[in-house]
Deep mutational scan, measured.
Amino acid sequence: WIARINAAVRAYGLNYSTFINGLKKAGIELDRKILADMAVRDPQAFEQVVNKVKEALQV
């Protein structure tokens, strides 16, 4: 799951650890299995999560 998430978030200019930190700051409580599945099956929803994380990180 970690490898999938890392590959997906790198397309948005983040790395895995920064993304996970941003999830916590944004108050998003999705587990890694769901995030990895979302990255593959629903990229639009995953992009929305990434955008919320970037807002929380102020990137």
Score class of each variant (00 low, 15 high):
W1G: 09
W1R: 02
W1C: 14
W1A: 15
W1M: 14
I2E: 12
I2M: 04
I2S: 01
I2R: 11
I2Y: 11
I2Q: 07
I2C: 03
A3H: 07
A3F: 03
A3M: 04
A3V: 06
A3K: 14
A3Y: 05
R4A: 14
R4W: 10
R4H: 13
I5T: 01
I5R: 00
I5C: 01
I5F: 06
I5M: 05
N6F: 03
A7F: 06
A7Y: 07
A7K: 15
A8M: 04
A8N: 02
V9G: 01
V9Y: 01
V9L: 14
V9R: 00
V9Q: 00
R10W: 06
R10S: 14
A11K: 10
A11C: 03
A11N: 11
A11H: 10
Y12D: 02
Y12L: 06
Y12E: 02
Y12K: 04
G13Y: 02
G13M: 03
G13N: 13
G13F: 03
G13L: 02
L14G: 01
L14S: 01
L14I: 09
L14W: 04
L14D: 01
N15K: 08
N15T: 13
Y16N: 01
Y16V: 06
Y16F: 07
Y16W: 04
Y16Q: 03
Y16M: 02
Y16C: 03
S17V: 12
S17A: 09
S17E: 15
T18K: 12
T18E: 08
T18A: 07
T18S: 09
T18W: 04
T18R: 09
T18N: 11
T18M: 08
F19G: 00
F19C: 01
F19W: 03
F19A: 01
F19R: 00
F19H: 00
F19M: 04
I20K: 09
I20C: 04
I20L: 07
I20T: 10
I20F: 10
I20S: 09
I20E: 09
I20G: 03
N21E: 15
N21Q: 14
N21T: 10
N21R: 11
N21F: 13
N21S: 11
N21H: 12
G22H: 03
G22R: 01
G22E: 02
G22M: 03
G22D: 01
G22Y: 04
G22F: 03
L23A: 05
L23M: 12
L23I: 11
L23V: 11
L23H: 01
L23E: 01
K24Q: 14
K24W: 08
K24E: 13
K24I: 14
K24R: 06
K25P: 09
K25A: 14
K25F: 09
K25I: 11
K25N: 09
K25T: 12
A26I: 06
A26D: 01
A26S: 11
G27W: 04
G27Y: 07
I28W: 05
I28T: 04
E29I: 10
E29R: 10
E29P: 10
E29Q: 07
E29C: 06
L30R: 09
L30M: 13
L30I: 15
L30G: 11
D31K: 09
D31Y: 02
D31C: 04
D31Q: 05
D31A: 06
D31T: 09
D31I: 03
D31G: 05
D31M: 03
R32C: 07
K33R: 11
K33C: 03
K33D: 09
K33L: 12
K33G: 12
I34E: 14
I34H: 12
I34G: 09
I34N: 12
I34T: 14
I34F: 12
L35F: 07
L35A: 05
L35M: 06
L35P: 00
A36C: 04
A36W: 13
A36H: 10
A36F: 13
A36E: 03
A36L: 14
D37G: 07
D37V: 06
D37M: 05
D37L: 05
M38L: 13
M38E: 02
M38T: 06
M38W: 07
M38Q: 07
M38H: 03
M38P: 01
A39D: 04
A39K: 02
A39Y: 06
A39L: 06
V40C: 09
R41C: 05
R41Q: 15
R41Y: 15
R41H: 13
R41P: 01
R41F: 13
R41L: 14
D42Q: 09
D42G: 02
P43T: 05
P43C: 03
P43W: 06
P43D: 05
P43S: 04
P43I: 08
P43M: 06
P43K: 04
Q44D: 13
Q44E: 09
Q44W: 14
Q44F: 12
Q44T: 07
Q44M: 11
A45F: 08
A45L: 11
A45M: 14
A45C: 02
A45R: 13
A45G: 13
A45K: 13
F46P: 00
F46M: 03
F46S: 00
F46C: 01
E47Y: 09
E47P: 00
E47C: 03
E47G: 12
E47R: 07
E47L: 10
Q48E: 09
Q48W: 09
Q48Y: 08
Q48K: 14
V49Y: 10
V49H: 05
V49E: 02
V50G: 00
V50C: 03
V50Q: 01
N51D: 13
N51S: 11
N51G: 12
N51C: 03
K52D: 11
K52L: 13
K52H: 09
K52M: 06
K52E: 13
V53P: 00
V53H: 00
V53K: 00
V53W: 01
V53F: 01
V53N: 00
K54E: 04
K54P: 00
K54C: 02
K54N: 07
E55P: 03
E55F: 07
E55W: 13
E55R: 08
A56I: 09
A56W: 07
A56N: 07
A56S: 10
A56V: 15
A56R: 05
A56M: 06
L57H: 05
L57K: 02
L57D: 05
Q58G: 10
Q58T: 09
Q58H: 06
Q58L: 11
Q58E: 11
V59G: 13
V59W: 06
V59C: 05
V59T: 13
V59N: 12
V59D: 11
